[in-house]
Simulated scan of single mutants.
Amino acid sequence: MFATIVFVAILFAVDQILKIYFSTNYGLNETETVFAGFLNIGYIRNYGVAFGMFSGMKWTIVLIGLVMSILISTVLVKSKQVYIRVALGLVLAGATGNLFDRLSVGYVIDYLQMPILPVVGSTIFNISDVYIIVGCAIILFFEVRNKPNSKNDMPVQF
C-alpha cells in the first residue's frame, strides 16, 4: 500500500510542477507549436470539466471530485490486483490534481494540445487528464480481456 501512496504522490507532484511551469512561463491563452500538427503547449484556465462543460459550477464539480476521490481511494485500498492499483492510482492522482487546482486557484490549469487527435484536437488539457484517461483505459482493457465470452465462457484472448 505504501508503494501506491508514493506512486500517487509522485504523479500528483509532477502534475503540479508542470502546471506551475506553464502558468508562470506562458501568458494566459498563449500557445506555442512544438511539433506542427501534433503537439502545442501553452496556458489556459479551464473553469469547467472536459471541453469546458459545466463552467460556473465550481462547487458542484468540487463536490463530485471529492466524492469520487473518496470512492476511488476506498476501492484502491481494498484491491489486491496490481493493474487495478496502478489504474486507480493514475485516476486518483489525476482527479486530485485537478481538484487541488479548483480549490487553490478556482480553475484547472491546462497546457497540452494535440491537434492530430480526432474530435478533441482543439481541446487543451493537462497531465492529470492523461492520468485519468490512461487509468480508465487500463481498467477497460483488463476487464474486457478477462470477461468470459458469452458463447463458450472462455476469456477473450488478445
Rank of each mutant, 00 (worst) to 15 (best):
T4P: 00
I5Q: 06
V8A: 08
V8R: 02
A9C: 09
A13C: 10
D15N: 06
Q16V: 08
I17F: 14
L18A: 12
S23I: 03
L28D: 01
V34I: 15
G37N: 11
L39T: 05
L39I: 10
Y43A: 07
Y47S: 11
V49S: 07
F51P: 08
G56K: 06
T60L: 14
T60S: 13
V67W: 04
V67A: 14
I70A: 10
I72N: 02
T74F: 14
V75K: 14
K78W: 06
Q81T: 12
V82C: 07
V82D: 03
I84V: 15
I84Y: 09
I84P: 06
A87W: 03
G89T: 04
G89C: 02
V91I: 15
A95V: 12
L99V: 05
F100W: 13
S104V: 12
S104I: 07
V105N: 00
G106T: 01
G106Q: 09
D110K: 04
D110N: 02
D110R: 06
Y111M: 11
I116N: 08
P118M: 02
P118V: 06
V120K: 09
S122N: 09
I132G: 04
G135H: 02
A137T: 12
I138Y: 07
I139E: 02
L140Y: 13
L140N: 11
N146P: 08
P148W: 03
N149F: 11
K151E: 10
